[in-house]
C-alpha cells in the first residue's frame, strides 16, 4: 500500500519540480505523446496477444435454464443460445455489472406466525461503487473532450450540463468529481479495512487507485482552487492534438502534474489488470452461446483420436463375452485363425 502511494507522490513531485525547473515541454509534450503511443500500441498488442490463443472449447458459464423443450422456459439472457442473447448478456455485464449484482445474501428471521422465513437481498455495496466509479470516469472522460475538439461537440456540452445539474457555484460544481473520489475511496477503503481483501491485495491493486485519486485530485484542484486559465490550456492541448505544440507559458505547474499522472496511467494501462476494460469482451465464459449441443465448436489444435478401440476390447475379452452370450463382431473360432 505505502510503496504504491509513495510512487504516485514521487511521480507528482517529480513532475512539479521538473516543470518548475523548466521541463514543461518534457512533461507537457514529450511524455503525453510517448504515453499515447505506448497505450495504443500496448493495447493493440495485448488484444493481439489474447486473440493469438484460440478458444478450444465452448465453455460459457450458464446462469439459468438452457434452451430445451418447448414447455420449459429458457433464460435467454443468462443462458443464451443465440448471438442475440450473448449480446444482451454481454451488454448487461459491461453496462450494469450484472454478475456483481448477483451477490445475494440471505437473512433468516423468525416471522410473527412462529415459523422461520428467509429473505434475500443483494449485497450491493461493491456493485454500487464500482458502477459509480466507472460511469463517473466515463462522463469525466467525455467532458474532457472540451479541450480536444473545436467547436465543442453538442454531446460534450450535454454531458457537462448533466454533470453540473445542481447549478452550484462558479465554476459550476461537477458532480462526477466528487462522486468518483468517494467511489475511489470506497474501493481503496475496502482493500485497507477488509482483512480478506487486504490479504489478497497487491501493489498492482493499490497503485492504480492512488494514481486515479491523484489524477482526480489534481483535476479538482485545477478547476476549483488553483484555477488555471482554461483558454490557455485549450490552446496548449489543441496544439498537442494538431502536432504543433503551443508554448506552455502562463499555465499552472499543477496542470503538468495532472498531465504527468494521466500519462503514467496510460503507460501503465496495457501492462496491468486495467486491461479488464477490453478483456471482459474476450471472456469465453461470457461471450459464447450455450449451443454446444446444437452446433459443433471447432478446436484448432484438436489432437488425433487415440483410444482403446472396440476391436482391441473384443480381442481382449472375446471368450468371456462369447460365453456370456454377448453379440460379437468376430466369433472366437474365426478370430483364432
Amino acid at each position: 500500500m505505502f510503496p504504491s502511494l509513495l510512487l504516485v507522490l514521487l511521480i507528482g513531485v517529480a513532475a512539479w519540480a521538473g516543470t518548475v525547473a523548466g521541463g514543461a515541454v518534457l512533461f507537457g509534450v514529450v511524455l503525453p505523446y510517448a504515453a499515447f503511443a505506448v497505450f495504443f500500441a500496448g493495447m493493440v498488442w495485448r488484444m493481439f496477444y489474447w486473440a493469438k490463443s484460440p478458444v478450444p472449447f465452448c465453455i460459457p458459464t450458464t446462469g439459468g435454464q438452457e434452451r430445451s423443450l418447448p414447455f420449459i422456459k429458457q433464460n435467454a439472457v443468462d443462458c443464451p443460445s443465440s448471438t442475440g442473447g450473448v449480446v444482451v448478456r454481454m451488454m448487461l455485464e459491461v453496462l450494469l455489472f450484472r454478475s456483481l449484482f448477483r451477490n445475494t445474501q440471505a437473512e433468516v428471521c423468525s416471522s410473527r406466525a412462529g415459523g422461520v422465513r428467509s429473505t434475500y437481498y443483494s449485497s450491493k455495496w461493491l456493485w454500487v461503487f464500482a458502477l459509480v466509479f466507472h460511469y463517473c470516469f466515463l462522463l469525466i472522460f467525455i467532458r474532457h473532450f472540451r479541450f480536444f475538439v473545436e467547436p465543442v461537440p453538442a454531446c460534450v456540452t450535454f454531458a457537462e450540463s448533466l454533470d453540473g445539474i445542481m447549478q452550484i457555484g462558479a465554476p459550476r460544481l461537477f458532480l462526477t468529481g466528487g462522486c468518483i473520489l468517494v467511489a475511489l475511496c470506497f474501493l481503496l477503503g475496502r482493500r485497507l479495512f477488509n482483512e480478506r481483501l487486504r490479504y489478497i491485495s497487491l501493489f498492482n491493486d493499490y497503485f492504480p487507485l492512488w494514481l486515479l485519486i491523484g489524477i482526480v485530485g489534481t483535476g479538482i484542484c485545477l478547476r476549483y482552487f488553483d484555477k488555471c486559465e482554461i483558454a490557455l490550456v485549450k490552446i496548449f492541448v489543441m496544439g498537442l492534438t494538431q502536432f504543433s505544440p503551443a508554448p506552455a507559458a502562463g499555465i499552472n505547474t499543477l496542470f503538468f502534474v495532472h498531465i504527468t499522472l494521466v500519462s503514467t496511467l496510460l503507460l501503465y494501462f496495457p501492462f496491468s489488470k486495467l486491461t479488464h476494460m477490453v478483456g471482459v469482451f474476450f471472456s469465453p465464459t461470457r461471450n459464447m452461446p450455450n449451443n454446444s449441443r446444437m452446433a459443433r465448436h471447432i478446436n484448432p489444435w484438436n489432437p488425433p483420436k487415440q483410444y482403446f478401440t472396440y476391436a482391441e476390447y473384443e480381442d481382449t475379452y472375446r471368450d468371456a463375452m462369447a460365453e456370456a452370450g454377448l453379440p460379437l463382431d468376430k466369433q472366437p473360432d474365426k478370430a483364432a485363425e
Binding site: 451477490n103 475496502r190 491493486d205 479488464h276 478483456g279 471472456s283
Partner: peptide, 11 residues
Amino acid sequence: LFMDICVRCGA
C-alpha cells in the same frame, strides 16, 4: 485472459 484481467475485487 484469466491470468491477466483479474482485478482482485474479492467478489
